[in-house]
């Protein structure tokens, strides 16, 4: 099912939580709603579920305008951050609850419970109560309960934030697998860029209630629309240098100059050059900088480089025989270098 959000706005009193949000989520995709805490992503999810009414704008599921539909009519499955399994029901009763409401006949109900329980691997736990399950198991049951009624849209609110690091890796792959198997359009909220990058088909990046960019993870990473998108994705955080671009060179505010990989760009106005750590390469024709710190990380070395008065983080190949205190010549690769307007943050 395709989801269309058209100029969706949500205000709480004077505060605007979601601001004129327009995006299309394609059928059958796993979409990550990504953004820092308080950016309005959970509000948006709750509006998709129908729990919160929109202030203005429209929400469409395929051809249905569901803007004013109550949650029970929308046919969405929702997995809560802390799972919200009914504590007085067993796992089987929890999964069965949405089907009972749909008045599914008992034999069919039992068949469906069996199928979905097998899919999320909880068939051994059907007679347990939620308080007898681990966090990961509760998560699986919550997903089963959300999926058993065959929703048009599956929503997950920070599904992995209550799990420990190892379970988190396991469960995110499980979510990906189950989503592929069922093909249900899925939206999950997260503030973890790595989580979003690793499993989603599409990332919707939000900040202060506004849509920043809506693209596949790789596009977002290699072609950020603005400074915030470049900043928010990637580890280590992208390097940012203040200055001005003119005639193929970037003049840093501290006085140093760096040749730009794409000489055509000319800012004229104060700009920020954002450079990913992997966009540095040793090159005899490059500009000189001092290695102020070295960290070995697996097959590569992370170095702190001094360019004029600024310090940047860069990945350098190990075999270079570089030592702390050396002066190396580096150049910038065209991929991973972006210029943003300092004032607006927009891409130049």
């Amino acid at each position: 099912m395709q989801v269309d959000l058209v100029h969706v706005t949500k205000r709480f009193g004077g505060a605007t939580a979601v601001d004129d949000f327009t995006a299309t989520l394609a059928d059958g995709q796993l979409v990550a709603l990504l953004g820092p805490s308080g950016c309005g992503k959970s509000t948006l999810l709750n509006m998709l579920a129908g729990i919160l009414p929109v202030t203005s704008g429209r929400i469409r599921f395929d051809k249905d305008d569901v803007t004013h539909w109550p949650p029970e009519r929308r046919g969405v499955g929702l997995v809560f951050q802390n799972y919200a399994l009914y504590p007085h029901m067993t796992v089987a009763q929890n999964i069965s609850f949405p089907l009972e409401i749909k008045k599914t006949p008992k034999p069919e109900r039992e068949k469906k419970i069996g199928e979905i329980a097998a899919m999320v691997h909880v068939e051994e736990l059907l007679n347990r109560r939620p308080d007898e399950l681990s966090g990961g198991q509760q998560q699986r049951v919550a997903i089963a309960r959300a999926l058993v009624k065959q929703p048009r849209l599956l929503l997950l609110d920070e599904p992995l934030s209550n799990l420990d690091a190892r379970l988190r890796l396991e469960m995110r792959e499980e979510i990906r697998r189950v989503q592929r198997e069922t093909g249900v359009t899925t939206v999950f909220v997260t503030h973890d860029q790595e989580e979003a990058m690793s499993i989603s088909d599409q990332i919707v990046l939000m900040r202060d209630g506004k849509l920043q960019q809506c693209d596949p993870a790789q596009t977002l990473y290699h072609n950020p629309a603005n400074r915030f998108a470049a900043e928010f994705l990637g580890n280590p955080p992208i390097n940012q240098l203040h200055g001005k671009a003119s005639s193929g060179r970037f003049k840093l505010s501290c006085g140093a100059e760096i040749p730009l990989p794409n000489p055509a760009t000319d800012s004229g106005r104060p700009a920020i050059m954002a450079v990913r750590a992997e966009a540095f390469a040793i090159d005899d024709g490059g500009f000189p900088c001092k290695v102020s710190e070295l960290f070995e990380i697996g097959k590569e070395e992370m170095a702190s480089l001094k360019i004029g008065g600024e310090t940047v983080r860069a990945y350098l190949p190990l075999e270079g025989g570089i030592r702390k205190g050396d002066t190396v010549r580096v150049k910038l690769k065209p991929r991973g270098v972006f210029l943003f307007d300092e004032e607006t943050g927009e891409r130049i």
Binding site: G50, E72, V76, L78, F80, N82, Y86, I101
Partner: peptide
């Protein structure tokens, strides 16, 4: 949260 869950599950 349980009331919200029940509503999303389709009951009211």
């Amino acid at each position: 949260m349980f009331y919200t869950a029940a509503r999303v599950d389709g009951s009211k």
